[in-house]
Design a protein around this nucleic acid. Sequence first.
RNA 1: GCGCAGGUGGUAGAGCGGCCAAUUACACCAGACUGUAAAUCUGGCGCCCUUGUGGCUACGGGGGUUCGAAUCCCUCCCUGCGCACCA
Length: 392
Amino acid sequence: MDALKNLLTRSVDTIYPSREALERALSSGKKLTIYLGVDPTGPHLHLGHATNLLVLRRFQALGHKIILLIGDFTARIGDPTDKLAARKPLTAAEVKRNFKTFKKQAAKILNFSGPNAAAVAFNSKWHTKMNFEKLVELASHFTEQQMVERDMFQERKKSNKPIGLHEFLYPLMQGYDSVALDVDVEIGGTDQTFNMLAGRKLLREYKNKEKFVITTKLLENPKTGRKLMNKSEGGLINLDDKPNDMFGKVMALPDEGVRPVAEFCTEMAMGDIEKMLGRDGNPRDTKLSLATEIVKLYHSEKIAVKARETWIKTFSKKETPSEMETVRIKKGTTLLEVVRAAGISSNSEAMRLFAQSAIKRNNTVAQDPKKSAIEGDVLKIGKKKFVKVLVV
RNA sequence: GCGCAGGUGGUAGAGCGGCCAAUUACACCAGACUGUAAAUCUGGCGCCCUUGUGGCUACGGGGGUUCGAAUCCCUCCCUGCGCACCA
């Protein structure tokens, strides 16, 4: 019973129509079908996705059927929920590539093989068959008022921002996914509430079926309300990040982020999380525990321990890490060019870094970008980037 | 279709003939301080050469006026609001 309670509360914001109803359905012993929709708009899944995947994993462990729905069709239209990103249409090839890496990343959490393997579906399967007649019929299930009522449309109306007509179709498409998949439960972040409820309504009207909707909490700083996994803020922790990067990014989280990340993105027992947070001492050490836990979950325990050691060595003790990227150069290449080769996008940017004493060569500030680099030089660029020079 | 108001850097939003590569805020980068946290302070934030009162590209697209335009004019495209249309 505890597992069930955990399942219905951890990371969960709201359950529609109600928690009690879903609890009844679950304890009846019936196996439910539950799905999560993801848009293959980029190649990475991040900790925000992990929240949902972990909940799904708990369902999977109880024997329920999991479907990961890839929104390969919807990705081409662009979800207005994320209005900042004016999306360019993705090609079929891009979608395919993104999906491949998606599955690999999701597989760190869900089982895609063995007994009760999670299934994968693509919504282009039914959406490409949609025609105008069906679309009109589908649209008749909603009213203009219901659409406009949506928060984000209200806001845009208020500020005279455009609302594309096609944006009304998005919830229809996503809602129709539920009908096509004929599922019992859908899960998604609270930002997807509107779309998921559209699917609930459709499923009821087409198939007389009550779909449950589970909305999960978004990862945000409880103090500022700011999103923790935000592309523009560079705090994105991707599931396929290299162990050391992943570790470092967790360490860079604001302290307040420890609780939500531990609760939503790990399998640590809730009691242990409380214990960890309740510990006295340097909050950094709490974060070290969390970072280790995260890397352990998405890589392995052994790798996590190593990443922890590397981090302490590099950043706490300020030693040069033992492993780093190498840059292969010809003899006589300048430091400036090495910095460029290490991923700095423009010369101006690189020159700025030199001027700001952000470039260190073998532990001393490099002043002159024109000096040649030699074999074995270690360049530190900014706070966290180290490269080793290899002359070929 | 008509009228009015708009379209500026990652975002918001100033500028309304030269002092504009463009105020400011947020985001971002670097340095200091630290716990690679946050907060704070300092600097930076188109590109290129380099370090100069430098060159190039840029304020929706195109054309024009002017010694000189993000700023004025014409035209096209786009958005919002209102009106008209509504078999």
